[in-house]
Design a protein around this nucleic acid. Structure first.
Lengths: 213, 213
DNA sequence: TCAAATAATGAATATGGATTCAGATCATGG
DNA sequence: CCATGATCTGAATCCATATTCATTATTTGA
């Protein structure tokens, strides 16, 4: 007998799989999900088209894996801020600032993760992870109600409002960057100004006492 | 010579075109853009597939027309509320209540118009009309700043936040209806409760003095 | 009513990328 | 260094709709 599934083989498989995912993520970060084709990705990753199917059951699953890999990072980064010590309003402020900065510097990726039309499997994950976002916002709101930072009645729905406001204003079609890109080449609003406005909007909406400035 | 483009012919063409659009809109309202196929629509409208191409250059243009037809109605309905007499905060309240009620009662259509992935041409129009929404929100905000209802610095960005918060909480994956549909069959939150929470969120975010209740 | 011009028909074709698979290549144990 | 079987390859195939177009039906003016 020959060619048993040895440890080093599994290891190499795992490495190759990650390599493919990395290439795919790079493509998505540069040109969005619409630019992710199996043949293009294979070329990019230095393997044959058919070989992709040894690692992923199909394109939908591959795209979903890319989505999950990237989104988990964002979610965990935000969660870290939200779980830090301090009053809830400060934690929200920091979370928004960080999220905004990350989106600002990888706009195409942010758009792909939050809003770009994609495979059914990606939409399913998007649904799931939006819930996850809403949940951590909701937990922060609950903390804030307890520590007196916020005054909120319907926490889940309010969390949804927060997610929507932040997503739309940062990476949606109404974001300052999108507006500038399409209209004239005028200098965009600064990240600082945008962060300030969004933060103020959110804190006020939650009934926070102390506002920035 | 024969068969000049007579008035009655143009009239009939126009009527047929509207009939096709109505059928298409019905399909979209019932099952979303993903269920809109040329052959299906033709069957539905009682004409041949090829005949669709006498009225529309292609599927993308047709879908975009459906989108525009439906969205214009929503936009104008909202604009009417916003242009009514009274203080800005009241007008916003009424506008949100009406928008929420309409979305609540035609959820699939609302989702199709606001969030469903669709043809490139539809996305283009979506972009345009989101700007249009943001613009009328922005005008209302300007009014509100003048009449003392609101305290807002960056009007365009704040308008984007409003659009995002309302869209996400009403028709996005985080909306109460979506949450209930997927999880248990528990009775959904009422339209009134949802409207109340969203209104409160928005008014507070704008620095409005008097809140509901 | 007829001939000319236009519109309607729907089966056949085009399209564009995902998926497959027969053959080539490679890793392993003996 | 061979035999075995897993893996890799990429051109061929599939697939689901959008689109076309030769043919048939309608409309119009004379």
């Amino acid at each position: 007998m020959a060619y048993r599934t040895t440890a080093s083989r599994l290891e190499r498989d795992q490495v190759l799989r990650e390599h493919v995912l990395d290439c795919a993520l790079q493509q998505v970060a540069e040109r969005g999900f619409s630019a992710l084709t199996m043949s293009g990705l294979a070329r990019n990753a230095g393997i044959a088209t058919g070989s992709l199917y040894r690692h992923f059951p199909g394109k939908g699953a591959l795209a979903a894996d890319v989505f999950v890999k990237a989104t988990r990072i964002e979610l965990n980064t935000l969660k870290e801020q939200f779980l830090a010590p301090g009053v809830a309003s400060d934690r929200l402020r920091n979370g928004i600032a960080q999220f905004a900065a990350r989106a600002w510097h990888s706009r195409q990726l942010a758009y792909a993760l939050i809003a770009e039309p994609a495979e059914e499997e990606v939409e399913t994950q998007r649904l799931y992870y939006r819930q996850a976002y809403a949940t951590i916002y909701g937990e922060l709101l609950a903390d804030g109600v307890r520590d007196g930072s916020f005054l909120v009645e319907n926490i889940p729905l309010t969390a949804a409002c927060l997610v929507g406001a932040i997503a739309e204003s940062l990476v949606g079609p109404l974001s300052p960057q999108a507006r500038v890109d399409r209209e004239s080449g005028l200098p965009s609003e600064t990240l600082e100004a945008v962060t300030h406005t969004i933060t103020r909007f959110c804190l006020r909406a939650l009934g926070a006492k102390e506002l920035p400035q």
